[in-house]
């Protein structure tokens, strides 16, 4: 399991994208921010590829 949840990372990616459309956008910081986004996107892809579901059959007899 990734240390940070994928949903959190996806939210961070969305927030990062939003920054480029917001009033907070600064050209001086844009290149570094863009680089961060590409790293984060690749990180998410890696997490998604590795993530497994935990499927557990309950140890309970429902016939009784």
């Amino acid at each position: 399991m990734a240390t940070k949840k994928i949903s959190t990372k996806i939210d961070e990616l969305k927030a990062g994208v939003e920054w480029f459309y917001s009033d907070e956008f600064e050209l001086d910081k844009a290149a570094a921010k863009y680089k961060d986004l590409t790293v984060l996107a690749k990180d998410i892809e890696k997490d998604l590829a590795e993530l497994k579901n935990e499927i557990k059959v309950i140890d309970e007899d429902f016939s009784k």
Binding site: I6, E50, K52, N53, I55, V57, I58
Partner: peptide, 14 residues
């Protein structure tokens, strides 16, 4: 489910 997504906790009542 496994093809589409990961990290889910699935409890199965047989």
């Amino acid at each position: 489910l496994n093809e589409r997504w990961g990290g889910l906790s699935v409890q199965v009542a047989h």
